[in-house]
Design a protein around this nucleic acid. Structure first.
Lengths: 196, 196
DNA sequence: CCAAGTATGTTGACACTGTCTAGTTCGCAT
DNA sequence: ATGCGAACTAGACAGTGTCAACATACTTGG
């Protein structure tokens, strides 16, 4: 017991579909996400997912929520592994974790932050997205507050991370090797004034 | 004469399709772009576009190229209208033009810089994209060159612009009014050292 | 412990999509 | 003027999301 695999027919189809979706976009890209392919991957009929995800946007939202969990964890892992506890070192460690997630989960990242339709009102998404946001708040907390307030600092750092990732992934004219993105981000990241 | 509208059957269907595509995504969003809807909007059969755009990705690429032209022009317009010719003022003017384009062409912007598949090898796209890139090179030219070189400066500025736009468009938790994006960008933009 | 009810799954249908193959029509060059 | 090729139409096919009707298995109230 305690094994949730004894649900009604399939056993935790909802989680299986999310996992299948993650694998699918990893193999075929974010646009290839399809209810029918995910259903086939999970070994159920094409209409089975409808009970767990009424529309494709619902499935996409659940996958994005899953991605946010992994995303925040990547940043936290890198922050924890950073020996230098200087605020800037921690901030850069988060950026490194950010880029490592991008490298290892490019399609998932694009699904999360690309323009594809999501259901922002979804509670699961809001909870998981708040975890990434908590990391952002933590790493920007030591920054000296300027005229735009601490929210301005958060927006600036997040913009740099997001924008850099977007260029690495989508701007071929930048000619950036995705593998060296973590180090390159560090080399361009401005020397913001920090408290303490 | 001089009127190009006397092509074979329809008269400049290629340009008509691009224009219809731009209108379509403005009305229904980037994901709603479809060959058949564009064909219907142009008043031709569903297979007519195939002669000008073999696949949907070709059409999308042409629309993105069109977008880059407009995009670069928005930045240039704002730079030209800026009375203060200080390098930072020019840089911020470009950012203002950038955001004005985003505000007025949100769906087109997402098509351009979102993850949707494009044909980067397309010559028309490369030419139009180089115009945006030329603006970037111009506005970052006065920046003091750091360890990452001038390319590092370009990447940083572009990242801030791109990232900020992405947050404005896609991150509902940021709770940013899109209309105030130009001013807000200016308020968070760092005070980078400039030559002269 | 069994019956009813509900959650979960299947099958089939519909409208829509991109793309391919044939045919048709029109304009231009030889 | 005639052929020839570019531009367009019509039809077909596989694949998509979503809906409706039905089947099954678990769960829970009596």
């Amino acid at each position: 017991m305690g094994n949730k695999k004894t649900a009604h027919h399939h056993g935790d189809l909802r989680a299986t579909l999310v996992k299948a979706g993650v694998e699918l976009i990893r193999e075929l890209g974010p646009d290839a996400l399809s209810i029918r392919k995910v259903a086939a991957k999970a070994g159920v009929s094409h209409a089975a997912p409808a009970h767990h995800f009424p529309t494709l946007a619902h499935l996409r939202t659940a996958i994005v929520a899953y991605g946010h969990e992994q995303f925040a964890q990547h940043m936290r892992d890198e922050m924890d592994a950073e020996p230098d506890k200087d605020p800037r070192a921690i901030l850069l460690a988060a950026g490194r974790g950010y880029m490592k997630f991008v490298i290892g989960n490019a399609a998932l990242y694009q699904l999360m932050f690309g323009g594809s339709q999501k259901l922002y009102e979804d509670e699961v998404l809001q909870v998981s997205a708040s975890k990434s946001r908590a990391v952002l708040e933590q790493i920007t907390a030591p920054m000296v507050v300027g005229k735009a307030g601490s929210k301005g600092n958060q927006l600036l750092v997040w913009s740099i991370f997001h924008g850099f990732a977007g260029i690495v992934l989508n701007d071929n004219s930048a000619e950036l090797d995705i593998e060296s993105a973590p180090e390159y981000l560090e080399s361009i990241f401005p020397d913001f004034p920090m408290n303490s």
